[in-house]
Design a binder for these strands. Structure first.
Ligand SMILES: [Mn+2]
Ligand SMILES: [Mn+2]
Ligand SMILES: [Mn+2]
Ligand SMILES: [Mn+2]
Lengths: 217, 217
DNA sequence: TTTAATTTTTAGATAAGTCTAAAAATAAGA
DNA sequence: TCTTATTTTTAGACTTATCTAAAAATTAAA
């Protein structure tokens, strides 16, 4: 059995791996987990001893098959619990992440599978992130954001790239929730802010905000 | 915030307190938690520093108001999660305890309250144990067991005093589940075993088994 | 290709929770 | 009451995960 800490390291490495082809750097893991590089080095050695990561000094780290399996199953847990909290316990999408950070570490295949069934096998979590299936396959969205659309184009909100409470609350306040249909009315060249239509209402949105909203055309 | 370990000590002391009027002994806590007396002494000192227990060397330990509040809220969590697992995720009553041991430590008042509401405010967990209310009141069953009944008397199963998997599985195999109606056909004086009727079937049950089954006449 | 900046690793310390073995206090028995 | 037996506490050691400060390796710049 792994400690919560070890599991969180695996999850962090998994997350960072998706953005990097080669090994994940010590510093990036430290930043992701709000810890120090020296702590990361120590933990990497331990995970390496347990054959959960491949590691060569100064060369970065990557997950082994086994390590990736564990990481994905934790992500699966995390996202299923988020769905549960929103769908069944009436939480808002900006309230569920921290609780899911704890719940994800409860390791029971039966629990996960029964929860999955109870939720009727959801494909996405409340933030639009894909839920890995039982075999560990994850089908990510294409990385197309609102900021990529041109004047006159339409799109549907399918996810967010930024998960902070404040961003999520802001989006909800202007009805930019999952499934919302958007039309680009205008783009201000100076700062790339946009005027868009959602729900027959017109709102303005900064580039900072639009580039974190994942869209399907 | 408390660690899981600290919470488990509080819970253990709470459990043992209900069977003792004066302070709980170091050894009994050690046994309850499968640890050593020396470890218990160390932890008690820590909990005492945090004003969660009252402690005088060699005189046993008892919970403060604050300590008891925490302990009860953990018990509340534990039992609500057990209800969830059985009612919503189709677990059997012998499968839920260990998972609840983990889930109970997820501290969120909102989560607990929403879960309580989702489950429609259950009064008892799957083993018949009472679920403390939001204010920390617990209404325990009277301690009347099947073994206390006389020949010819009837009773209804309302709980168990022993929570081992094997006992729970055994009970289920002979239909001695919560709510089952029992009639005592005969008592063997030699070993206090009983012949009883459940669901129109007759079964024999040892004293060891009957004295752990809580009954309401 | 040296030198300088950055990144990563090591060395040594600290805190939590545990253990064994031994000492101290309490309880039980003669 | 005095002597054992039992219980509880203390002393000292170990493990895990963390940190700071310093050394080593790599990368970037001149
Ligand atoms: Mn999340
Ligand atoms: Mn999410
Ligand atoms: Mn239980
Ligand atoms: Mn129970």
């Amino acid at each position: 059995m792994l400690t919560f800490t070890e599991e969180n390291y695996l999850k962090a490495i998994f997350k960072l791996s998706s953005k990097k082809i080669d090994g994940v750097s010590t510093n990036s893991i430290a930043e992701e987990l709000s810890t120090k590089a020296s702590s990361v080095t120590d933990m990497i050695k331990k995970l390496s001893d347990k054959k959960l990561v491949k590691y060569k000094k100064y060369q970065g780290v990557s997950l082994t098959k086994k390590g990736k399996q564990i990481a994905v199953s934790i992500v699966r847990n995390h996202r299923l619990w988020e769905v549960f909290l929103v769908e069944k316990l009436n939480f808002k999408w900006d309230e569920v992440h921290d609780l899911a950070e704890d719940l994800e570490h409860i390791n029971s295949e039966k629990l996960t599978d029964q929860l999955d069934a109870f939720l009727e096998f959801p494909k996405y979590d409340p933030h639009g992130d894909p839920i890995p299936d039982k075999d560990g396959n994850v089908y990510n969205h294409k990385d197309e954001t609102l900021a990529d659309l041109q004047k006159g184009e339409k799109g549907i909100v399918v996810g967010v790239k930024e998960h902070s409470k404040s961003y999520l609350k802001y989006l909800e306040s202007i009805n930019l929730v999952l499934g919302a249909e958007i039309k680009i009315n205008d783009i201000v060249e100076f700062d790339n802010s946009m005027s868009i239509s959602v729900n027959k209402k017109t709102v303005n949105i900064s580039h900072q905000a639009s580039k974190n909203l994942i869209i399907k055309k």
